[in-house]
Each structure stands twice: as C-alpha cells, then as structure tokens.
Simulated assay, not measured.
Amino acid sequence: MEGKVMRKIWERCALRRDIAKEFLAEFLGLFVLVVFGCGAMAQMTLARRIAGDLMTVHVGFSVGLTMAVYVSGGVSGGHVNPAVSLAMVLLDRLPLKKFPVYVLAQFLGAFVGSCVVFALYHDALMSHGGGQLTIWGVNATAHIFASYPARHLSAGNGFLDQVVATGMLTLCILAVTDGDNMGAPRGMQPVSIGLIILGIGSTMGLNCGYPINPARDFGPRVFTALAGWGKGVFRFGGYWWWIPVVAPMVGGAVGAATYLFLIGLHHSELHRRRVAPHRVAPQQVREDLSNQKSTDMSRLTLPCCAGV
C-alpha cells in the first residue's frame, strides 16, 4: 500500500522536462553553497573571531561547494556558478538556450540562501551592530553576504584579481573532470573541486575575498539591499558591485580557453574517441579500435558531466 502511495506521489509531482530538473538542481546547489559559506562568514564576524577565523571560512566555502556539486551534479552537471556555465557553453558542453535558465536558478538559489543565513543569525546581527546593519566600520556585517574591496585595491587590480582567480577555478575544474587527463575518480570530483576553492581562498583572498561567482555575490548583495543595508551595497567602493559580476565571467572564458588550447586540443584522437565514442561514427570507432591490439572495449565510456 505504501509503495502504491509513493508511486502516485511520484507520478504527480515528478518533473518531466529536463530543463526544469536542471533549474531546481542549480537552485539547490547555490542555496547549499551560500548557507555553508555565508554561514561561516556570519559565525566568524558575529563572534568577533572567537568562534571562527579565516580558515573556517575557507573550509565553509570549500565544504559548501563540495556538497553543492554532490547535490546538483547528477542532474545539471553541478555548475553552481555562471562563470562555469559560460565556460561550458563556450566549450559546447551546455546548449546556449539553457544558459539563462542556469544563471537565473543560480541567482535565486543564492538569494534564498542569504535569506536563510539572515534568519538564522538575525538576533546575533542585531546584537552585533546595536540594531544597525552597516557596510563599513568595526560593526560592519554586509561583507557576510557579498564581497567588498580592501582599502588598497583599485578597480583595475580588483578586476584582474577576479579574472585570474576565476580563470584558475575553471581551468582546474576542467582538469579534474577531463577523462583524457588524469582526472579525479568517479564520485570524487566534488571533493577535488572543493579543494580548488580551499586553495584559491588560501592564496587569493586578500584583495576582495575571492567571490569568483557572480550569482553567489550578486544574489546576496541584492538581498542585503532589500533587508536593511540599503543601496550603499551597490555604491560602496566606487560602485564595486559590477566587478565580481563581470570579471569572473571573463575569467571563466579565459580559464576554459587556456585549458583547451594548452591541454584539451592535444589529446590523441583515439583516446578522445574511447572517452566520447558518441561523437564519431560507430563504424569509425570500430575501425580505429581494431587497429590497436591492446584495445579493451570495456574502456569505452561516456564523458563525465560538463560542470562537475
């Protein structure tokens, strides 16, 4: 009886269209990332570094991204970042028509994640700032949700910072998921991607806190503008807000192009066909494989998900 009930629920509620499933997967992925990452920032800030420090923030974002990819990877590819989605479009691994759907889902997931972090730490936020939500100063809390530049940072240097950091992220993701390269064992790619974030946070966080994700930065920033911090979240730092939105997109494209031209294009054709046999005619695959005495047909596998 219970099985019949569950079957009826599944038949009524299960989505049929792939794009709807992918939308929900990217939404939930960003939600998980922001709850873990911004939650770590909130704990460090509101406890005045007694219950956390920069390393716990790095770990929070790393674990958050790892879990986000585990949550969404099998459905949408686990992009959870518009810059990664753009890279997949440029590499012909994601149809262009799906790109705006992914970006919208990512933005909304980050926005809702910010709502949850705000609700979770509402009383602590009010206590920390004496009832005031401020952007700068000893009691500032806006940086819990979005990035802001350090005093020494110029707009040009900040733009370069985000291009380089996001380029490194994209390049390393492509390496981790490249079946023609060493790659990571199946099921371990999310862990490897989380370690990339740990590395970036430990080495490239000084200037502006390594946002490297337009949705993760812009969604929470919009939330803070609506929740009480005001329009200053967009004006602060000489209208800094657009840099962590635009520069990571450039960095994602640069990182993808770098990996493609220095590594991806130089894999042997036969090896590529073993990994992605669906991209060539079956007869051509059989002919090529028959010429290799050591070929093992069991090595023919489909490529891994585009963004995992």
Results as ranks from 00 to 15, higher is better:
residue 40 A to H: 01
residue 85 S to Q: 12
residue 77 G to N: 10
residue 147 S to L: 12
residue 222 V to L: 15
residue 60 G to F: 13
residue 79 H to F: 13
residue 106 Q to F: 07
residue 235 R to C: 05
residue 83 A to D: 08
residue 156 G to S: 09
residue 224 T to A: 02
residue 83 A to N: 01
residue 176 V to S: 07
residue 182 M to Y: 02
residue 107 F to Q: 01
residue 13 C to E: 13
residue 258 T to R: 08
residue 48 R to G: 02
residue 292 Q to T: 06
residue 33 L to Y: 13
residue 264 G to S: 05
residue 264 G to P: 01
residue 241 W to G: 04
residue 93 R to W: 08
residue 253 A to E: 06
residue 194 G to E: 13
residue 260 L to K: 09
residue 306 A to P: 12
residue 40 A to G: 11
residue 182 M to K: 03
residue 294 S to C: 13
residue 24 L to D: 06
residue 181 N to C: 05
residue 226 L to D: 01
residue 88 M to T: 04
residue 38 C to D: 15
residue 128 H to D: 00
residue 111 F to A: 00
residue 2 E to N: 05
residue 37 G to K: 02
residue 177 T to L: 15
residue 81 N to E: 04
residue 247 A to Y: 08
residue 306 A to G: 04
residue 91 L to Y: 07
residue 13 C to Y: 13
residue 129 G to M: 13
residue 279 R to F: 14
residue 181 N to Q: 08
residue 163 V to Q: 05
residue 31 F to E: 03
residue 52 G to F: 14
residue 288 D to T: 01
residue 54 L to Y: 06
residue 2 E to F: 12
residue 171 L to E: 02
residue 55 M to I: 14
residue 53 D to S: 12
residue 141 T to E: 05
residue 18 D to F: 11
residue 285 V to W: 15
residue 308 V to S: 14
residue 126 M to R: 10
residue 114 S to N: 04
residue 136 W to G: 00
residue 98 K to R: 10
residue 283 Q to G: 06
residue 155 A to M: 08
residue 168 M to G: 09
residue 238 G to D: 06
residue 183 G to S: 10
residue 167 G to W: 07
residue 111 F to N: 00
residue 203 T to M: 14
residue 194 G to P: 09
residue 224 T to Q: 03
residue 206 L to I: 05
residue 120 L to Q: 02
residue 285 V to L: 14
residue 210 Y to I: 07
residue 227 A to Y: 11
residue 234 F to I: 03
residue 129 G to Y: 14
residue 11 E to Q: 09
residue 107 F to V: 02
residue 130 G to R: 00
residue 226 L to C: 12
residue 248 P to K: 15
residue 99 F to W: 15
residue 48 R to F: 10
residue 5 V to G: 01
